[in-house]
């Protein structure tokens, strides 16, 4: 019976989820603290910061996924 191994795409999804979870853990307490201490204006600033960092990570993860998919395709053809 052959050993089952996760595909590179599954690994990428796993890393993407972990990265987003880390980002959430980093920013989450700050947002919660802001909700208690400050008003809606400050919250809007937090949302802009959160979206900026999240968008950056989504774009970088998109590039990683595209490289991994391309690499997998080439390796499959070579083997």
């Amino acid at each position: 019976m052959s050993e089952r191994r996760p595909s590179p795409a599954a690994w990428t999804r796993c890393w993407a989820f972990l990265a987003l979870a880390c980002l959430g853990l980093l920013i989450g307490p700050e947002i919660l603290a802001a909700q208690v201490e400050t008003g809606t204006r400050e919250m809007r600033h937090f949302w802009h910061v959160f979206i900026a960092y999240a968008a950056a990570w989504i774009l970088i993860l998109g590039w990683i996924v595209s490289i991994v998919r391309r690499l997998r395709r080439v390796e499959e053809r070579l083997h």
Partner: peptide
């Protein structure tokens, strides 16, 4: 990334 974070 620059073009998204700048307008925000």
């Amino acid at each position: 990334i620059v073009l998204i974070t700048g307008p925000l």
